[in-house]
């Protein structure tokens, strides 16, 4: 009697597992795709084989120059302001040379350079460690080089935050909505429990617009295709000495900094 019950439960369990597995497979094959429908990029979209940015620090003169690029990003992307560093979310921000390029500071640097704020954002690396470690492909690299974050898929494990050597990723420790000063109704907010970061304004590139910070920077931030020898970024890089953050880690960061020479001092 007891063996019969046992056997029954075993068989029932096994068949339930098979049935569930089979259902998943069938669902996958017979996906309800619309036959006639298809997807395509927007006609006027800006495209590249590898997007990159050159930040010409010589052109950041006043505090206002920084504010403009940071505020425009914050407002169009519905970035909350929690007013404390623990919950902080940032896509683009500033810090001093010493903290932007740790280990690269020199003794007796020009004082202006030492105190100058440097603009930081996601480096959209060639070999992004965040993408390598993500267990759900919620963060992934697009064909044009942009490291993208799919907030719908993110499970909030924060492995990417441990992996990013640039501190470019922020986690929503709590619901950000009450802390957004003025919502931009054309862009989503985020929910608690997901990781977010700069996306090089993919939503603007799709419409044929430059990233918002670039547009607001008055030429201090240059954006373009690194594989195109005639692009603005390539011109800037071939006529100036530039540095990148932590290139020795092999991540291949795509944000270049022009520090400038004597006139900066």
């Amino acid at each position: 009697m007891s063996i019969d019950r046992r056997e029954f439960l075993k068989i029932a369990g096994a068949s339930a597992i098979f049935a569930l597995g089979g259902m998943a497979i069938v669902n996958d094959i017979v996906k309800d795709n619309l036959e006639a429908s298809q997807f395509s990029p927007e006609p006027g979209a800006l495209t590249a084989r590898k997007w990159a940015m050159v930040i010409d620090m010589q052109k950041f003169k006043t505090e206002d120059d920084y504010k403009k690029v940071i505020n425009v990003c914050n407002s169009i992307h519905n970035i909350p302001d929690f007013g404390n560093p623990k919950d902080e979310i940032k896509w683009i921000w500033t810090d001093t040379f010493e903290h932007t390029f740790p280990g690269q500071q020199q003794e007796f640097m020009p004082e202006s350079l030492e105190r100058m704020p440097f603009v930081m954002l996601c480096n959209h690396c060639d070999n992004p460690p965040c993408v390598r470690v993500c267990p759900t492909k919620a963060t992934f690299k697009r064909k044009d080089g942009i490291v993208m974050q799919d907030m719908h898929r993110c499970i909030g494990c924060r492995f990417c935050m441990a992996a990013c050597p640039y501190g470019s990723r922020s986690f929503n420790w709590r619901d950000p909505r009450p802390f957004i000063k003025k919502e931009n109704p054309e862009y989503p907010t985020r929910t608690k429990g997901v990781v977010e970061k700069c996306t090089f304004c993919v939503e603007r590139l799709a419409k044929g617009l430059m990233p918002a910070c670039v547009e607001a920077s008055n030429g201090a931030m240059i954006f373009g295709d690194l594989t195109d020898p005639n692009s603005e970024v390539r011109k800037a890089l071939s006529s100036n000495y530039s540095i990148r953050r932590k290139p020795e880690l092999g991540t291949g960061p795509n944000i270049y900094y022009i520090i400038g020479g004597a006139d900066n001092a």
């Binding site: 919620a138 909030g156 997901v194």
Partner: peptide, 17 residues
Amino acid sequence: VDMGQPTRIMNVILHPT
């Protein structure tokens, strides 16, 4: 308990990486 979005934990299986 460390997941930000615990209800999506099956994404690890649904999107094996």
